[in-house]
Design a protein around this nucleic acid. Structure first.
Length: 423
RNA sequence: GGAGAGGUGUCUGAGUGGUCGAAAGAGCACGCCUGGAAAGUGUGUAUACUUCAAAAGGGUAUCGAGGGUUCGAAUCCCUCCCUCUCCGCCA
């Protein structure tokens, strides 16, 4: 959520930035400013009326104590009008605030100045590409066939137990999962992230804090009985640890990592792009989250991007880094890098990580602040990224590393898998 | 799930209708004291909105959340949330 005071003071710039995101309702900006003016004048009137009423109430108390009952009664009679005004003004103020809020939450975050204009994923900017695309033999198989051949993943069994998009990992497939999780967590800890293990269900306030609510209800599984959402990403519980928190300036940056399953309804997905591990309702992911000083957050974003790239390099996966264009960015993000690995057997890039700086868009909702050098509270910046999501990593590892003999496990993973080959 | 107790500032904790944004203590910050430290001592120490060119200052709201009673609510009433204790159930 954008800060109203910022919109008020930077109207032109806000409009110009929103255009980069191809925002369709620029008129909302002026509506927000108008409502904010109304809000402030209403509040001033309400405050002044309340002040009068408070003064009178104190006087009545004083008069009662000194035995001047008649005067007290006289004053009491006057308070009726104030009371009515206060009630009316309070209701007006709430209505205006509600209206303002409803419009404010429709405004996406402003994109960073480096964000390219554009509407579609094709217009994302390729920042860099690293690692050679492997040459696979003629008879190379996509990962879903490899998974069947080596008895690693049973998609049918998952359908029986739950439904499509809930695979069962078996044997070395299950062990590979666990190895990747441990490897990613260890690497994150080496980079200074402290591990947390968090709830997989969150309440409404948390969904709101990170921006999944209101709006994206449809993408989360919901437990009606207890009004809880299954997390679509660990970003939600981890970032919400800092909801309603005022950090000390010297505490920044806060760095956390965590492994969780992620649950996504993925309503409307279909076809070859959801084949195998490409798109699942439940998958495992290691998330890295930072709460950073506003002056340092872009430096932090680069560090996080390099961390993710390091993982991909160590795993020997060819990858590229995209700077998302305005039209392809998330609602809450100011700048997003997507990392994609090259799936040789599918001949396509698969997104395996997304690293974003939300600036103060999330922290404004979260009321996540820190005390700055002047001792004043200031909104912190939040960032997060996948490091990494497992299924597509598994998919590319299986596909890119297939040989006559079997699937070669990358060296860095062998201490975790305790085997070198899937055969 | 049932019964009871309770939720007050960074923490402990007082406050059962007015003088309470809130005693006292601890912690923390700054100063004094000291050769240095401890002890002692003094001062300060919530958040948001708003007013003001800014600072200073002022106003309003907030004692788990929301509503109500009242001229006036931390205090009384209602609803919800949470914590603790006991019972029940259970990895």
């Amino acid at each position: 959520m954008l800060q109203v005071s910022y919109i008020r003071d930077n109207r032109e710039q806000v409009l110009e930035r929103l255009a980069v995101k191809n925002f369709k309702q620029p008129e909302l900006v002026d509506e927000v400013i108008a409502l904010d003016n109304e809000r402030r004048s209403t509040q001033t009137t309400l405050d002044n009326t309340s002040a009068e009423a408070n003064t009178a109430a104190k006087q009545i108390g004083e008069l009662m104590r000194t035995g001047k009952k008649d005067e007290a009664e006289g004053l009491k009679a006057k308070t009726g009008a104030w009371k009515e005004d206060i009630k009316k003004l309070g209701e007006q103020l709430s209505a205006i605030e509600e209206d303002l809020y409803q419009k404010l939450v429709l405004l996406p975050n402003l994109p960073h100045s480096s964000v390219p204009k554009g509407l579609t994923p094709e217009e994302n900017e390729v920042v860099l590409q690293n690692g050679a695309k492997p040459e696979l033999p003629e008879n190379a198989l996509p990962h879903w066939e490899l998974a069947a051949k080596y008895n690693l993943i049973d998609f049918e069994l998952g359908v029986k137990i739950t439904g499509a998009g809930f695979p069962v990992y078996k044997n070395k497939g299950a062990k590979l999962q666990r190895a990747l999780i441990n490897y990613f967590i260890d690497e994150a800890e080496k980079a200074g992230y402290s591990e947390v293990s968090v709830p997989l269900m969150v309440n409404e306030a948390s969904g709101f804090g990170t921006g999944q609510l209101p709006d994206k209800e449809g993408q989360m599984y919901y437990v009606t009985e207890d009004k809880l959402f299954l997390i679509p990403t660990a970003e939600v519980p981890i970032t919400n640890m800092y909801r309603d928190v005022i950090l000390k300036g010297e505490d920044l940056p806060m760095k956390n990592c965590g492994h969780t399953p992620c649950f996504r309804r993925e309503a409307g997905s279909y076809g070859a792009h959801v084949r195998g591990l490409n798109r699942l309702h439940q998958f495992d992911k290691i998330e890295i989250v930072q709460v950073a000083h506003p002056d340092k957050s872009y430096e932090t974003l680069e560090q996080m991007s390099l961390h993710v790239q390091g993982l991909l390099q160590n795993l020997g996966l060819p990858y590229r880094v995209l700077r998302l264009c305005g039209g392809d960015m998330g609602f809450a993000s100011a700048l997003t890098y997507d990392m994609e690995t090259w799936s040789a057997a599918q001949q396509r890039w698969l997104e395996v990580s997304s690293v974003s700086n939300f600036e103060s868009f999330q922290s404004n909702r979260l009321k996540l602040r820190f005390r700055n050098a002047e001792g004043k509270t200031q909104l912190a910046h939040t960032l997060n990224g996948s490091a990494l999501a497992l299924p597509r990593i598994v998919a590319t590892l299986l596909e890119n590393n297939q040989t006559e003999r079997g699937i070669k496990i990358p060296e860095v993973l062998v201490p975790y898998t305790k085997f070198e080959w899937i055969d």
